[in-house]
Design a protein around this nucleic acid. Structure first.
Length: 241
DNA sequence: AAGTCGGGGAT
DNA sequence: ATCCCAGACTT
């Protein structure tokens, strides 16, 4: 026991919030452990989808990310075969009749936006041999490519360890460590650093799929299955309940 | 920061 | 009947 100033080190004086907005060493360790734990968990319990198969092209994986926006993976899964046999390549998609595309997309909802987004992406893709810019700033200038889809392109097209940081991945990280400080996921530096740290390492695609599966099946927004959670011993969320 | 697009499944 | 879903865009 020490009796001298039990507070923070002097270097931390003046901080406005009790939680730093930068990723700390201990948090990196926790995320690294979480990563390997979830990869092991997903080996048995992970979901299986056609766009994750080795045979799936980066075209399919990128298009699927657009289809998955505000849509359940189950819905896209049902939709997958018909869509990609009708539009198997960027070329086929770029030549699609808007009405035809809309007919396909209606059951998923948001079909006007999705049709416009996909057509725009396809027309861009065929103008550059299917390769989106490697520079993220250049990618983000393309309509329908926000932060999330940009990361998906980095991950699936260039093999970079980019995080598919959405509300679900955010929920897992925030429960496991602590809530973000900014309202918007995309503007929270700590959360972005945490997600990036989680994604880095071998098998970045598997790691992303693992945490998204874990979010969907165990660490659900409502009624999380903490009793059957493989990382419960290290989770701050269950500790606080 | 808040509103909009959106049908479908889960609760 | 309400909430949630691998977001992006406009105001």
């Amino acid at each position: 026991m020490v009796d001298v100033k039990p507070g923070r080190p002097i270097s931390c004086r003046g901080r406005r919030t009790p939680t730093a907005d930068r990723l700390q060493v201990g948090e990196k360790r926790k995320l690294t452990r979480l990563r390997s734990d979830l990869l092991n968990w997903a080996r048995q319990a992970g979901r299986v989808y056609p766009w994750r198969a080795n045979a799936a092209s980066s075209y399919e994986r990128i298009v699927v990310e657009v289809l998955l926006q505000r849509t359940t993976a189950t819905a896209v899964s049902k939709f997958y075969d018909a869509f990609f046999s009708r539009f198997p390549t960027w070329e086929a998609l770029a030549l699609a009749q808007p009405e035809d595309l809309a007919t396909f997309l209606k059951p998923l909802g948001l079909w006007r936006k999705r049709a416009a987004s996909l057509l725009g992406l396809a027309k861009y893709a065929i103008s550059v041999s299917g390769q989106f810019p490697r520079n993220p700033r250049e990618r983000r200038k393309i309509p329908a490519i926000g932060q999330y889809v940009s990361s998906a392109i980095a991950l699936f097209q260039y093999g970079e360890p980019a995080p598919l940081l959405d509300v679900n991945m955010s929920r897992v990280i925030e429960r496991f460590i602590h809530p973000r400080s900014r309202a918007d996921i995309r503007h929270d530096p700590w959360l972005r650093d945490a997600a990036s740290w989680f994604a880095r390492g071998p098998q970045p695609e598997m790691a992303n799929w693992a945490i998204l599966d874990f979010a969907a099946l165990v660490c659900k927004s409502r009624r999380p299955r903490c009793s059957e959670c493989p990382v419960r011993p290290r989770c701050n969320y269950v500790r606080s309940k």
